[in-house]
Amino acid sequence: MPRRTIRIEPLLPAGTAAAAALRRERGLRRTRAIPATLSATRKPPGSPYNRGFAIDGTSTMLNEIKKDAQARMTKSIEALRHDLTKLRTGRASSALVDHLKVNYYGSDMPLTQVASVVVSDARSLTITPWEKQMVSAVEKAILASDLGLTPNTAGTTIRINIPALTEERRKELAKHVHGEGENAKIAIRNIRRDANQQVKDLLKEKQITEDEERRTEEEIQKLTDKSIKEVDEVIKGKEQELMAV
């Protein structure tokens, strides 16, 4: 039997005078009973696609599962990129200090909201607080960080020199980068597992066929492979940056 889009009026019980009046007002015909395969009460717990009043069939359900998985995988990759920008690689980058918090009149504020950060050259940053009285607060934030850098201040200008990395330190950081990449891959595979489980739940509830299950899991695997490849590219780029003299 072909599936049909069915509008549900959740606030008005079927068969009441109010429901009938609303149908007449909107020019709606009396709806047929919802097939068991599309019943909103038969969806697996936590399904991301049971959010509206209209049910568009199994294709919408499966597409929502894939879209949700893809969005979560993308967030995992972006989180990896963000974390790797904090690593000191021997080359100056404003991203190196973006995560620092500065005490601004009793509140912790991002450094970039109280000062300008400029890459002076390949090995130095220049930080200029917007307010003169914030100079000491910025210095304290730099010294208290895990960057291992010492600020040099002249008036309201703070200069940070980025020392070259030793060979041993480069190898340590490369190992750390590789570990972060593996963690990102684990997160992506866990997302694949969750998505596949949602598909299996639909099959168990007889809301999809075995062919639909197989096809959807293959598409989820393609999303996973693509995301893993992106992680490898991010890690490779960071390792090359670390090993560059």
Rank of each mutant, 00 (worst) to 15 (best):
residue 151 P to Y: 03
residue 184 A to N: 05
residue 176 H to V: 12
residue 148 G to M: 09
residue 132 K to M: 10
residue 154 A to H: 13
residue 148 G to V: 02
residue 145 S to P: 02
residue 153 T to I: 14
residue 169 R to D: 07
residue 146 D to V: 03
residue 184 A to K: 09
residue 149 L to N: 03
residue 177 V to H: 00
residue 187 A to P: 11
residue 186 I to K: 13
residue 136 S to Y: 00
residue 169 R to Y: 02
residue 136 S to K: 15
residue 159 R to T: 15
residue 162 I to D: 12
residue 173 L to W: 09
residue 168 E to L: 05
residue 177 V to K: 01
residue 189 R to S: 09
residue 166 T to P: 02
residue 170 R to D: 04
residue 154 A to D: 15
residue 173 L to A: 04
residue 159 R to C: 05
residue 179 G to N: 11
residue 164 A to Y: 11
residue 171 K to C: 03
residue 137 A to S: 15
residue 133 Q to K: 14
residue 181 G to I: 06
residue 156 T to L: 09
residue 136 S to W: 03
residue 156 T to I: 13
residue 164 A to W: 04
residue 136 S to D: 10
residue 137 A to L: 08
residue 183 N to W: 00
residue 183 N to D: 12
residue 134 M to H: 12
residue 130 W to P: 03
residue 173 L to M: 07
residue 174 A to N: 01
residue 146 D to L: 01
residue 147 L to C: 08
residue 159 R to H: 05
residue 135 V to E: 00
residue 166 T to K: 06
residue 173 L to D: 04
residue 171 K to R: 15
residue 174 A to S: 14
residue 162 I to E: 05
residue 144 A to Y: 04
residue 187 A to K: 11
residue 158 I to C: 10
residue 133 Q to D: 14
residue 170 R to A: 05
residue 167 E to W: 00
residue 153 T to A: 08
residue 131 E to T: 08
residue 178 H to Q: 14
residue 153 T to F: 01
residue 153 T to C: 05
residue 148 G to A: 04
residue 138 V to H: 04
residue 146 D to P: 04
residue 160 I to H: 07
residue 159 R to D: 02
residue 171 K to T: 13
residue 173 L to N: 10
residue 178 H to P: 10
residue 183 N to P: 10
residue 140 K to F: 03
residue 186 I to L: 10
residue 167 E to V: 02
residue 133 Q to F: 12
residue 131 E to P: 12
residue 189 R to W: 02
residue 134 M to K: 06
residue 167 E to C: 00
residue 185 K to S: 07
residue 134 M to A: 15
residue 154 A to T: 11
residue 185 K to N: 06
residue 159 R to P: 01
residue 137 A to H: 06
residue 156 T to R: 11
residue 178 H to A: 14
residue 183 N to L: 10
residue 147 L to Y: 11
residue 167 E to G: 01
residue 179 G to C: 05
residue 138 V to W: 02
residue 162 I to F: 10
residue 150 T to Q: 08
residue 187 A to T: 13
residue 156 T to Q: 15
residue 182 E to C: 01
residue 185 K to C: 07
residue 144 A to C: 10
residue 145 S to T: 11
residue 177 V to M: 02
residue 183 N to H: 11
residue 133 Q to G: 06
